[in-house]
Each structure stands twice: as C-alpha cells, then as structure tokens.
Amino acid sequence: MSTTLPAGYSQALHPITSTDHGGYASIASGCALVFVLIFAAIRLWNCGRIGHNLDDSVLFAGTSFQVIQSILILIAVDQGFGHAQGILDQHAVSRIDKVVYASDILYVVALYSSKVSILCLEMRLSVERIHVLLAKGSLLVTAAAMVASIVMVAAGCDARRPWTQVESECTGLYDRWIVIESLGLLAEIFSLVLIVRIYVPLQIHWRAKVRGLSTFGLRIM
C-alpha cells in the first residue's frame, strides 16, 4: 500500500521501515553535528573577542573529527547501514563495517578532544597551584582514557579483520562501549567539580554563578 505525499513534500532521504532503521542513525548524527557546529561557532566568536588559546585549537580539532565522523555515518547509511540482516550481500556488509569502524574511532577521538579542551580551559581560569595541579592530573588521566578507548575500539572483534562486527560474535563489544562512555562521564564529572571549586569562592552575583555552572553542567547530558 503506497502513501501519496501532499504537494510540496518529498520522500525522506532515509525512510525508516520495519527492515531499515538507518534513518535513526542519520537523525542522531545530524543532530549531534548541529550541536557541535553551534558550539564551535560560539567558541570561534569568543576567539574574536578574547583571543585564541590552546583549548580553542583542541576544540576545533575535535570538531573536525566530529564532522568527518558524521559524514562517514551518512555514507554508511547510504550504503545500507541499518538494514536487516539478510538484505545486503556480504560485500556490502564488509564495506559498511569498514566505514562504521573508522567512524567509531573518530567518534572516540572527537569525544575526548572536547573533554581535553575543557580541562585546558579550566587551567587558564585559575592560577591557584592546587587547581592547576588537579587540572593537569585530570588531563593526563583523560588522555590515558582516550588512548585506552581508541585501543578498545580499534581492537574490534577479530584480530585479522578488526572492522568486522556483524558476521562475527563479539560478546564484549557492548561492554567496551559501556567502559568508554563511563570513562568519559567520569572525566566530565571531575571537570565539573573543578569548575565548582573555581566558581564557589568568586565574589560575583549568585545568578552569574548559576549560569556559569549550568553551562558546564550541561556537558554531562
């Protein structure tokens, strides 16, 4: 049974059906890309007002990785990512696996680059020795977590073909992503604790404190 679209409307680029859920990946990737570009534009505007620093460079590098990662996801969906098993031939599945494998690694790099950028920013916000030491320590731990996360993703399920996910059993793959995201969440929480440590003693209006803490706190979401 076909559905006639109203005048002025066209068929979705990646329609969601019972056998094709690739549209969900397109929507999620597109929304994430919009947010990343908005934040990058805000930081770029701030650079024009207060100058460019190391944390800005790290953020722009992470943004570049995120843009490429989003493009790879859209390419994978175009090639059939999200289709039910049995619809695509083996060659198409292998091609999609390689694209998704590359996008997963870029996602981890982009994810942790944003955390490193925030920690570099926090190092600039306070000259207190203990705060700088805490920020540097957190920066080292976050960098180590990023390397560990990249290794976990890059290892894949099969040493001979690490990009293979669909046709090989990999019971620990989901657990790896839980570890990766948990490490990232812990880094965000510690980063927020450092910001609270800076803001609480400041002699400014409480509303300004709430706005500042809320801005950094939204990153946890």
Rank of each mutant, 00 (worst) to 15 (best):
I96C: 10
Q69V: 03
C31G: 11
A145M: 10
H83N: 12
L140A: 08
I180D: 15
L88W: 02
V108R: 03
Y174G: 11
S64M: 11
K115L: 04
K209C: 04
S29T: 04
I198Y: 07
D158G: 08
D158Q: 13
T142F: 04
A61L: 07
Q69H: 06
I75N: 00
R124C: 07
D158N: 14
A110V: 13
T142L: 03
Q11I: 08
S114E: 06
Q203T: 04
C157W: 08
T164S: 13
W206P: 00
L213D: 14
T164K: 13
D56W: 00
W206G: 03
V127G: 14
A12S: 09
Q203E: 15
E188G: 13
F190T: 13
I38A: 13
A76I: 04
I42K: 01
M123P: 00
G217T: 09
A28N: 03
Q203N: 08
K209N: 07
A144N: 02
N53R: 05
L134G: 00
E181P: 01
V67R: 09
I27V: 15
I68Q: 15
I96Y: 14
I38F: 12
D20L: 02
R43W: 13
I118M: 12
V77Q: 03
I189S: 02
Q69T: 01
G23H: 11
V147I: 11
A159K: 12
